[in-house]
Write a protein that binds this DNA or RNA. Structure first.
Lengths: 117, 117
DNA sequence: CACTAATATAACGAATTATGTATATATTGT
DNA sequence: ACAATATATACATAATTCGTTATATTAGTG
């Protein structure tokens, strides 16, 4: 199988949930599998492989368990891409705040209500 | 074709680039198509449909053009999901700063170098 | 209305991805 | 060495996705 890029890796809801679980604390593969009863054991193993190859998780052997942990650095491409759009949110938040600040005409409302010096 | 969710919609590199183009300013479909010579006209039209159905772009008819514009609100699911991981970045930035602050062993360096009271 | 330009949809094949069953590998305990 | 547990891989197959060619739709223009 060809190596999957980060964006495709996180396009699957199960894999995103796995990452969410791992963001709390590391877990062995079996425990992750049990958290998704609708997914077979080999199915989960494959999801984990995808996440592994995309650099989103790390594995560590502990006796006969494979303990998976989040490797958040692997999300860097997504973070970098979406960061370009964060400005839109901020702009919108600003205008939302401005709106909430201005239930009336600007001339009718004090500059900073209930904020004593 | 089944309606594609946001994460799947942005899993395609061409579609991400289309969004990047639209983040600068709106453009008619044809112009977007010409920006990707490796994609046929119907191919681009389909990408645009996916983006449209995922709520990532909006269309407006202007004479015989279809002018596409970014609808950044459609990125909210991605933004919300990845926001949960932003803490990891911040934590790491903190430790990176701490590391850059500490070129020597902690015991060898003052608590707050060059910060007079 | 015929003609053209711009874009969308249909139909289809190739490539990729998803998922289950069966099997293999590895590690630990007896 | 053998059995048991935990996990991975192989293989087959179904479902999605992507891209192409051909065709339809929609809106202006003469």
């Amino acid at each position: 199988m060809r190596r999957m890029d980060t964006f495709t890796a996180i396009s699957d809801p199960t894999r995103r949930q796995v990452l969410d679980l791992l963001s709390r604390h590391e877990r062995p593969a079996g425990e992750l599998g049990r958290a998704f009863p609708s997914v077979s054991q080999p199915g989960m193993s494959r999801h984990l492989r995808v996440l592994r190859e995309a650099g989103l998780v790390r594995v560590r052997k502990q006796d006969r368990r494979r303990v998976y942990s989040l490797h958040w650095e692997g999300l860097a491409p997504v973070e970098a891409w979406i960061a370009k759009y964060r400005g839109f949110w901020e702009a919108e938040l600003d205008s939302l705040e401005a709106f909430l600040d201005s239930p009336t005409k600007p001339s009718e409302r004090p500059k900073r209500p209930r904020t004593p010096p």
